[in-house]
Amino acid sequence: MQNRGFKKGLAVFWWLTLIFLYAPLLVVMVFSFNAINTSARWGGFSLRWYERLLNNDVVISAIGHTLLLAVISSIIAVILGAMIGYGLYRHRARRLGLLIVLIYLPIVMPDIVFGIADMAFFVQINRLTGLLSPGLSTMVIAHVTFQIPFVALIVYSRFVGLDATLFDAAKDLYASPWQRMLHFILPTLKPALLSAFFLSFTLSVDDFVISFFTAGPESATLPIYIWGAIRRGISPEINAIATLMIASVALVAVVSLLFNRRRA
């Protein structure tokens, strides 16, 4: 019947979607290798923009800030988020309605609201105590706050998918509370914690809005640098930075996918 035509139509739709999603990225990546200083036409292959990037100290330090912020905030978020996820699981029998909403809220809240709120909060703290002047520390705290819900939900769903009797079995087999943590809960959670870390890492590298409101003069990350640079026009150098970011995020995504697949 029309079934074949329908399937063909679906395939076309699928490819159109992919093109729609990835064509802009492809353009950026191609023009990062452009020999001339424009994104309007192709002037031959060249690595000069990458060379210039490597010699740009501001860019190098922005990359450093980005990675440092992503690693530190992800580690903290995984630890705190895992504790929340475990708590949610342990008390799942109670009515957790409001608590669940409070956990979900940062996920749906617009970044700009969070960014402005964080900034205002840190300014107040700084005014009163002299602590938390804008810089890496405020950015870490801000990033951790938006990473935690994702970690908590990943850990919680891992626990929910687990046979609850396993907790009893560990107790029954002489494991003390600490041994249960070390020999049962942590090893069981390992794949979930790794996925949570990779997700937090990507979210952090990805973030511009919240970073923008909480950064200090010395702690600009790559997205902030790009935003600043772009006001002077889109240069092929920006294309090169973007290409590097796409590559690294893709790498992290693939690695976390492989971890998930091995677990399944």
């Binding site: 009797t165 396993l166 009893d168 049962f184 069981t188 390992k190």
Partner: peptide, 13 residues
């Protein structure tokens, strides 16, 4: 005291 559980509860890891 040790228990053989209905779901067996073998540790998957």
């Amino acid at each position: 005291v040790n228990t053989v559980f209905q779901s067996y509860a073998l540790f998957p890891h």
